[in-house]
Simulated scan of single mutants.
Amino acid sequence: MATIAEQSTELRLATFRLARRMRAQKADEALSDAQFAVLGALYRGGTQTLTQLAEREKVSAPSMNRTVNCLEETGYIERTADEVDRRKTNITLNDAGLALVKATISQRDAWLTTRLRDLSKEDRAVLARAAELIGGLATQ
């Protein structure tokens, strides 16, 4: 029987491999994982400032500014001056960015659905329970 430390290692490696395979499924393959993470943050959290995005992604403001500049150049986001504090700039997902995120979500769901169909009903039930547990671990 594996120790808790060994189980931790196995779980970490399995989740990293799955996450890598999922990240590879995206509607615009030219985007980096960091760029798509910003689009995802804007999709889930709505309009944010550069500082908010940098804090969320745990990167420096200059690094986030480069990422946001690239996303703006590719036409996926827009920057607007904050109506209350003109020193701040709000970053928003535009229609093209929204379409890209939705297409990527759909592609990732389809990829995973195809893989799950190959499993038995019992194995899918185990994974459903594991998803609940992993989700709980991720929020601690």
Rank of each mutant, 00 (worst) to 15 (best):
M1A: 08
I4V: 11
I4R: 08
A5E: 15
A5M: 10
A5K: 13
E6R: 01
Q7D: 13
S8V: 00
E10N: 08
E10R: 10
L13N: 15
L13Q: 15
A14E: 13
A14L: 13
F16P: 00
F16G: 09
A19E: 14
R21S: 14
M22N: 04
R23T: 03
A24F: 02
A24W: 03
K26A: 01
K26D: 07
K26Y: 01
A27K: 11
A27L: 09
A27Q: 15
A27R: 13
A27W: 01
D28Y: 00
L31E: 09
D33R: 04
D33V: 06
A34C: 02
Q35V: 00
F36P: 03
V38N: 07
V38W: 02
L39N: 06
G40A: 12
A41M: 09
A41H: 13
R44G: 09
G46F: 06
Q48A: 15
T49H: 07
T49R: 11
L50V: 05
T51S: 12
T51Q: 15
Q52K: 11
E55K: 04
E57T: 03
S60Q: 12
A61L: 09
S63D: 14
S63W: 05
N65T: 08
R66Q: 13
V68F: 01
V68I: 13
N69L: 08
N69E: 15
C70P: 00
E72V: 00
E73N: 08
E73W: 01
T74N: 07
Y76Q: 10
Y76E: 14
E78I: 04
E78P: 00
E78S: 11
R79F: 04
R79K: 15
T80R: 15
A81R: 14
A81E: 13
E83L: 13
D85I: 02
R86D: 13
T89W: 03
N90G: 06
I91H: 04
T92I: 03
T92S: 15
T92H: 08
T92L: 14
D95P: 02
D95I: 01
A96H: 08
K102P: 04
A103H: 03
I105H: 08
I105W: 02
Q107D: 14
Q107C: 03
R108K: 12
A110P: 09
W111F: 15
T113R: 07
T113W: 02
T113A: 14
T114D: 15
R115P: 06
R115N: 10
L116K: 01
R117A: 11
D118R: 05
D118I: 01
L119M: 14
S120P: 06
E122I: 08
E122N: 07
E122P: 05
D123L: 06
D123G: 01
D123N: 09
A125N: 11
L127W: 00
L127T: 05
A128Q: 12
R129Y: 06
R129L: 14
A131Q: 10
A131V: 04
A131K: 05
A131C: 03
A131L: 11
E132F: 04
L133T: 06
I134K: 02
G135T: 06
G135Y: 07
G136E: 15
G136M: 09
L137H: 05
L137P: 04
A138Q: 07
A138K: 11
T139G: 11
T139M: 12
Q140G: 05
